[in-house]
Design a protein around this nucleic acid. Sequence first.
DNA 1: AACCATTGTCGAAGCGCTTCGAAAGTGGAC
DNA 2: GTCCACTTTCGAAGCGCTTCGACAATGGTT
Lengths: 339, 339
Amino acid sequence: MVTIEDVAREAGVSISTVSYALSGKRAISEETRRRVVAAAERLGYMPKAAARALAGKRTHVIAVTTPLHADTDHSAHMAFAMAVTTAAREHDFDTLLLVQDDELEGMRRTAATLLADGIVVLDVAADDARAELARQLRCPVVFVGVPTDNEGLTCIDLDFERATEEAVEALRTAGHRSLALVSQGQDVIDRASNYPLRIERTFVAAAERHGLEARIVRPRPDTSTGVVEALLDEHPDVTGLVLSTRSEVADAVGPALERRGLRVPEDMSVVAVGMTPEPGRQPLPFDSFPLDPQLTCPAAVDLLVGIIEGRVVPGGVQLVPPVHQARGSVAPVRMRDVR
Amino acid sequence: MVTIEDVAREAGVSISTVSYALSGKRAISEETRRRVVAAAERLGYMPKAAARALAGKRTHVIAVTTPLHADTDHSAHMAFAMAVTTAAREHDFDTLLLVQDDELEGMRRTAATLLADGIVVLDVAADDARAELARQLRCPVVFVGVPTDNEGLTCIDLDFERATEEAVEALRTAGHRSLALVSQGQDVIDRASNYPLRIERTFVAAAERHGLEARIVRPRPDTSTGVVEALLDEHPDVTGLVLSTRSEVADAVGPALERRGLRVPEDMSVVAVGMTPEPGRQPLPFDSFPLDPQLTCPAAVDLLVGIIEGRVVPGGVQLVPPVHQARGSVAPVRMRDVR
DNA sequence: AACCATTGTCGAAGCGCTTCGAAAGTGGAC
DNA sequence: GTCCACTTTCGAAGCGCTTCGACAATGGTT
């Protein structure tokens, strides 16, 4: 195991010179620096994480907590965790994974043992217990998502309100007057991330503001296709669909429409809002304002690292503007046979 | 920040006594131990990870590497990573997440900087570059999956051969004579985990051994339902289906059968092999020999921790016997109208 | 009474690195 | 030649913990 001392000897300089040459924290003559770097490479030197952390008071590790409910989709979780991990590497940080019942205790342990320099909180619920904990911990924490009580927290999230408004606006502009939002199941609304509720509220408000008809349906946890069928049965006049739901339900929309001879976009315009694309699956064939991990996670990590390094003042909610992905699923409304 | 020294002072003993009392590595009188524990609790003491690692030469962290191909299902990855993380916690280890292009460099870095005490390798490909790397690293590594060249490696995996044989046997016993395996797409076969190929080979061999007719279909990457339709068109005599495929394709099997009036299990018996259940989604309504992370990951972590602690000798491939989950999708063959 | 083994505790030496203060060297201004 | 400011390098003090060897106290043997 090659240590800094070996490098110092090899380069014919002192230990501290090696440290400064490699970290660049003090001026070292160009020639010496080169000798040190060469020696380090020759020996394959890499500073031991533990020693570096102990002396430097920085572990270069961030923790990620993501509670994995039985009824949430792991695919999205992984996409977020991955995005954070990848972003962290850009800053030369590694990522510790905190999951399940370990969320709270894990955060506490991580902070107390100085295992990590900071924590990224994923899959934030409206009344997330981690919010209160984060306030107590003397450890930088960034939330990807916005808990209801976010006083004193640092949060970053997609601007769901704006995404929803733009979705409604797109449909309205195309002449649609009767819209429906396919939302999440009651269980998710109750417990999980609070954005589905934010979307619902914004949807209703935006529709009302423009004098549009708007209804909301929530699929039951166990059914997927049923909800769309039921909606179309009950309200055959709907010509614009906003989707903010589980991917299974979204997947079922196309077939359900097809089954009753409705084409997209000729007979039905569809826009998805806040849905996370799933790598490895077909992307939804609909216009979308996706909740892409790439939108929030790298920014969250930047923030966290900034706080860790003292460059950034913690606190505040930051909303990322939505990105519109056109897929040709919105078209001007036109008459159609209602059956 | 409370240190061991604070605890020592509070308990009125020396630093080393605190260390021994808390670790139990040397005999400490019951009374002293109690005093130390009380003091530690009173102060909320937790040993700093870095100091512990530096002095103790053990970080209590394991790394998990899982390459995330664009075309693989993240859900399964997350399930495995989670299973490892949870199992690691049982041993008082935390988990570092290594992903993407960082797989190899990450492993190297982790080993060289002693960031982690060991590494769990997930989603193992047949010719996995991490195999060679693992042999070079002076760091305990356990593979969940079996690379073709596994010389000198420690591997653990589901016994796919046996699972496949049992699946075929179940169908054969029920009188089925014409079977089909719905396998993975060519791309997955080529590149990803090698088990789909192992399943295909075993399927053919087992069928041959019993004089059964056997065919294999591989869905194209972009189509899901098509493959089953095509199969049934071409071979209407098939009465037993073995599924070892993407979940989308598996999901499409039921509807496809339904569409041609075939009921499970009356008209078609179905068994899934090596498919990972996805939390949050409906489980497949078929008899199954699942590739459950719970089958392999906890065992892999046990192994790894054993190696780290010197209790276990590394090396060898360990196959976990499959577990049969009955869901009533296998029934005796019977005549049916072929259309 | 002298001896030994056992038990419980302590002191101190590191683990490998960062960082502070100081020393040594250099060159220009006076 | 002296002084100062600057650059470059070094030595040493920790960071908070584990662990080894030593020491003191105890009690049983001879």
